[in-house]
Design a protein around this nucleic acid. Structure first.
Length: 412
RNA sequence: GCGUCUGUCGUCAAGUGGUUAAGACCUCGGAUUGUGGUUCCGAUAUGCAUGGGUUCGAAUCCCAUCAGACGCCCCA
């Protein structure tokens, strides 16, 4: 036999059974996001590599080791690892800053990251997300979080935990970073290898290390004091405070998590995640935050923005399986031409109808009907002659013979 | 990139060095040439991820490779 070709590591087929859930995720996204005034945007799956280097940040793991990058005609091209950079690029390129703020956009689609697959993580995965441009007030942060919660509710996911934090602005965050580095400096050699790397790359990430020896170090009172200190400046604190006020008012339950940092460089002030206990170690379904300097960094006018993305595979794994719909009717008939004719009549009126295309025996056709359909439409020689159809309810075994024109009324 | 575990039919599996590799489900055919779901009968792996090795003898032991699951890092 010729060698079989298999799906690549970290990729998956979405088979018909599973695609029902995907359709639901996408349908609900359209419905819920529309209610908040969001419009769908579809950007290309590949972009200039530089967009992600500048957008996502060239110190991030995503850009450094996880991108699918290739050269074509002297251009470096990358399969999108996330979609915020692409949406921002489009926002700038299409002069959307001329539109009346806020500009509200949503997207869904495949993303690509070269990582070792594990529970809740694949190399090709799907995200649904929203981005709001032009509002610097914390009302935007609140609305975007509310929208995420609302969308999850629409899927029946009511009890996921919302975590929030404020990273401050570039200025106050930088001061905080320096303080952390300073207080940890004497312990540097006692930190684990990962933490030693993080020390330079992203000191904020040091704090939730899972290695015991590091945890012990961070427990020390003089270090705890720095970690727990309210470092953010007055303006940032006001923004954060007001966000919490809105969330309280809207009765969105949340917990504050000072260790919530997020790995993309572009965030400032508000960051948040929504987590589930039923996802294994990759437990975040939703991650997002405010990114006020990204539009400018990618060559646009200074425009505040806030948004989030959800992992659709992770979302999917939290949802119950959907039973596939049965056909309205299966035609049992040994004359394909007549079966075709009846099937088309009903299909044109919107019914879901199939019949046997390989002319199997009567009993086989009926057996098939009982598996896939609510009604069997028996169309034998007698029925064809008299222009009737025998309609059998496969759940109750009741059977009646009706005029052909009446079939639709009897397969309700 | 690192670590742990696992690979027997389309699926779930039994098998722990000794004939011909259980069983169940699915699928297909028959009992049943116009009445299904129940029932009964039958079909379907010269093959145990792949390649080597040990042995009189390997699905079983060893090595390598590949694939998968989970975890670290990181992220949705």
């Amino acid at each position: 036999m010729t060698k079989m070709i298999k799906v690549l590591k970290g990729t998956k087929d979405i088979l018909p059974q599973e695609s029902l859930q995907w359709q639901r995720l996408e349908q609900n996204a359209l419905n819920v996001f529309s209610r908040y005034g969001y419009k769908e945007i579809r950007t290309p799956i590949f972009e200039a590599t530089e967009l992600f280097a500048r957008g996502v940040g060239d110190t991030t793991d995503i850009v450094n080791k996880e991108m699918y990058t290739f050269e074509k005609s002297d251009r470096s091209i990358t399969l999108r690892p996330e979609n915020t950079a692409g949406v921002v690029r489009s926002f700038i390129e299409n002069n959307m800053s001329r539109l009346s703020a806020p500009v509200k956009l949503w997207y869904k689609g495949p993303m690509f990251r070269y990582e070792r697959p594990q529970a809740g993580r694949q190399r090709q995965f799907h995200q649904v997300g929203v981005e709001m441009f032009g509002i610097k007030e914390p009302t935007a942060d609140a609305e975007v979080i509310l929208l995420a919660v609302d969308y999850l509710k629409s899927l029946g996911l009511n009890d996921l935990e919302v975590e929030i934090n404020s990273l401050g602005c570039p200025k106050c965050r930088e001061e905080y970073k320096q303080k952390i580095k300073e207080v940890l400096k004497p312990e540097f050699n006692n930190l684990c290898e990962d933490c030693q790397n993080r020390y330079e790359k992203n000191p904020l990430r040091l704090l939730d290390c899972k290695v015991e020896s590091c945890k012990e170090i961070f427990e020390k009172p003089e270090i705890q004091k720095v970690i727990q200190s309210d470092f953010i400046c007055e303006e940032c604190a006001k923004h954060y405070h007001d966000l919490k006020l809105y969330l309280d008012k809207l009765q969105v339950p949340y917990v504050e998590n000072k260790l919530l940092v997020r790995g993309l460089d572009y965030y400032n002030r508000t960051v948040f995640e929504i987590k589930s206990n039923n996802l294994g170690s990759q437990n975040a379904v939703c991650g997002g935050g405010r990114y006020d300097s990204l539009v400018r960094n990618l060559g646009g006018e200074d425009t505040p923005a806030v948004g989030w993305a959800m992992g659709m595979e992770r979302l999917n794994s939290l949802l119950p399986e959907i039973e596939p719909d049965k056909l309205d009717a299966y035609i049992v008939c040994n004359s394909p031409a007549d079966a075709f004719e009846l099937a088309q009549e009903l299909r044109e009126k919107g019914s879901k109808v199939e019949f046997d295309l390989s002319n199997k025996k009567f009993t086989k056709q009926l057996e098939k009907a009982s598996k896939v359909a609510k009604y069997a439409l028996i169309l034998g020689e007698d029925e064809i002659k008299t222009n009737k159809v025998a309609v059998k309810n496969l759940a109750t075994s009741e059977q009646i013979t009706v005029d052909r024109n009446d079939v639709l009324n009897n397969i309700g």
